[in-house]
Write a protein that binds this DNA or RNA. Structure first.
Lengths: 236, 236
DNA sequence: CCAAAAGTGTTAGGCTTACACCCATGA
DNA sequence: TCATGGGTGTAAGCCTAACACTTTTGG
């Protein structure tokens, strides 16, 4: 590679690109797929909403950068994180060449305390379907990550990351409907989910609801791993 | 973002990462899925085979970098190119922090002239299944791209990019078997392919074969686009 | 007793899979 | 005439999709 042919040339010519990460942090509440946005307090894009992002430090593992953002904004670590795509248009950032690696995270939004951070003037959970404009090319990044989430959620049991430990089948269906932006048939959805044998009946029921209380389930990680070893796939 | 908070800090601290691309160039010949490798002539990894790669120039569109590699090695432009994943481990490159964006390309290897280039001491088409070791983390990158290709080829009609303009159904089946590393049933494969209505019978037959000559088809791009608009999916 | 959501089965049709023999050609 | 791969149809069963009413609870 050119690197080794012209070592004196390298730093001057090539080491002038900045690398950042943007993290699309998805949540779910009241039937809405949410994304965690920050409000910018400076130019460019002053007062615009944006995805939380950060520069990658020279000695920082790439994957640690989105985790750092997450930790700072929500206090959480150990969450589902997936690399999505790298966006590198020359003019995507008005102040220079900044290539950004987009990640998305899935967290249970309900009990997350948003902490003040160096990233943002303010932060908010916003329904994905209500977002019309964002700073930079962040709308494009969000849409790409949402599509990527749709694929993931159909092929791997990752949707559970957005729900509390225990949940009802209706919760799960509403989640899938919000992510996939389709209506699903209740009976068929339940049949399929239960037939995959990855839900554990925790012998509890909803309380405080003005209707027949639903059974609570949790995702059986262990069972899923066993099935995966046997080559049994998860699919919606 | 921090960028605008501490502008004097930026260049010193963050603009010290190099960005490269590596291009997994797939080809297909004699029933083998091939990848175009270059042989390194310098340390580190002297005499190792590696994926062709290059640094991204400061004013170069990210997607243009793998196209530049392709052009230089094969003379081709306008080929199928897909971004796969970004690899950014701190220690992945022995000479500093180099984050690399992996792409893969699909080309018809048969009639490509490999041209001498600044990238390589020598170049070769190597069957993917025979590759045991590569420079840097290129084996991991190759495997990731191969998996990504498997997904793509099952959901979009991109396999055709690896074949000549016209091909037989057996060519197509052998291609799918090589990529997916499975045996497929001849009758079922043909039924499915023909039923998708994206193959155009070009009214030719093979010649010079010591058996009943096969019909030649070509991929009907226009028909596929029409079907896609109607929401009809391609799937293997 | 009313409102609200939970929970439940069946059927038709489409798709997938498994499977074996004759055909056309060049040598 | 032989070797080689091309080309073809059917049946079983599995999966999907469509569809409506009863149950249980809180208010």
């Amino acid at each position: 590679m050119e690197l080794y042919r012209q070592p004196q040339f390298q730093n001057e010519k090539f080491f002038t690109i900045a690398l950042s990460v943007d993290n699309v942090i998805f949540g779910f509440e009241n039937g809405n797929l949410l994304v965690l946005l920050i409000k910018r307090g400076e130019e460019p894009f002053n007062n615009y909403w944006a995805l939380p992002g950060a520069k990658v430090k020279p000695d920082e593992e790439l994957v640690d950068a989105p985790m750092r953002i997450l930790k700072e904004l929500t206090g959480l670590s150990n969450v589902y994180l997936e690399q999505c795509k790298t966006f590198g248009k020359v003019d995507r950032h008005p102040e220079g060449r900044v290539v950004t690696v987009a990640y998305f995270s899935l967290i249970n939004a309900k009990h997350v305390k948003l902490t003040p951070s160096s990233f943002a003037v303010s932060t908010a959970w916003v329904p994905v379907k209500d977002i019309v404009d964002l700073a930079f090319d962040h709308k494009e990044i969000l849409e790409y990550c949402h599509n990527s989430l749709k694929e993931s959620v159909k092929q791997r049991p990752v949707g559970f990351e957005l729900l509390p430990q225990t949940f009802t089948l209706s919760d799960l269906q509403t989640l899938y409907e919000a992510i996939l932006e389709v209506k699903l048939d209740k009976r068929n959805f339940r049949k399929k989910m239960l037939s995959m044998d990855i839900l554990l009946d925790v012998n509890q029921r909803q309380s405080g609801v003005a209707h027949r209380p639903a059974k609570m389930y949790k995702f059986d990680e262990y069972k899923y791993e066993q099935l995966k070893k046997k080559g049994v796939a998860f699919a919606i």
